[in-house]
């Protein structure tokens, strides 16, 4: 019997699990999430035997199915990539805030596995027919997920697209994500050109709902510097308010 009081926890089933780049995977979970998931939001999944759930930005959301992109990095991601189609997965979400979508031309910046929420944002913008350009940076061509649509590609070794880091090419930007040096550069360039930026931040999380204060970053608010939990007040922040470490 489903307890109507209990929201946001889903016992999902893996419908697709595919290797989409040298070290990256796409996992599609059928969990019949009854609410619309917004670009920038994330989910957490339970990884058997591990204490902390792992947060992942939502990459796709169709017909109650949540898609995530992940890079094999530690115990959590290794567990997830060992799962098979039909396996159950305990999922919570959607959590966190979202990108603020505006009716104006938007430049989207993503790098590495951080492409996931930006790719989702692009789909949303395309649906709304908002002009956009997704510029994505990767280490090399083997790291580019085969299931993403990007407008401009940059690779560190020049094996696909232009050679160099995506941030070398920035002069106008609006939305972006991960990793920190990219984020910080984008925020700074945005400030230089007086362009509003929104940044999706990442931090190790425990509760993922704002109570434990484990994932706080410093932000500027009303002239002072205060703590903000990435999981609750974020993960999307205005580039101008983030205090970089």
């Amino acid at each position: 019997m489903i307890n109507e009081k209990i929201k946001k926890i889903y016992n999902g089933k893996i419908e697709r699990i595919e290797k989409v780049a040298q070290t990256s995977y796409y996992i599609e979970i059928n969990c019949q999430v009854p609410v619309e998931v917004k670009a920038g939001q994330f989910v957490t999944v339970y990884c058997s035997g591990l204490t902390l759930r792992r947060p992942f930005s939502v990459f796709s959301n169709d017909n109650g199915r949540i898609g995530i992109l992940l890079k094999e990095r530690g115990n959590g991601t290794k567990y997830l990539t060992s799962l098979k189609i039909g396996d159950n997965i305990d999922l919570i979400g959607p959590l966190g805030n979202q990108f603020n979508i505006e009716e104006k031309k938007s430049l989207l910046i993503g790098a590495g596995i951080g492409i996931a929420p930006i790719s989702f944002l692009k789909k949303e913008l395309d649906k709304k027919r908002i002009e956009n350009c997704l510029a994505a940076g990767f280490l090399n061509k083997k790291e580019i997920p085969i299931n993403i649509k990007v407008d401009k590609i940059y690779t560190d070794d020049g094996s696909n697209g232009e050679k160099g880091s995506v941030v070398d090419y920035l002069d106008e930007l609006i939305k972006l994500y991960h990793p920190l040096p990219v984020l910080k550069t984008v925020a700074n360039v945005g400030e230089k050109y007086c362009i509003a930026t929104q940044i999706s931040m990442e931090k190790v999380m425990a509760c993922a709902i704002g109570v434990c204060r484990g994932c706080v970053i410093n932000i500027k608010k009303n002239g002072s510097i205060v703590n903000a939990a990435v999981c609750k007040e974020g993960p999307v922040f205005n580039g101008s308010e983030v205090v970089w470490e």
Partner: peptide, 9 residues
């Protein structure tokens, strides 16, 4: 502020 360990955090 947070780190996971083998049997906790």
């Amino acid at each position: 502020r947070i780190a996971e360990t083998k049997a906790g955090m």
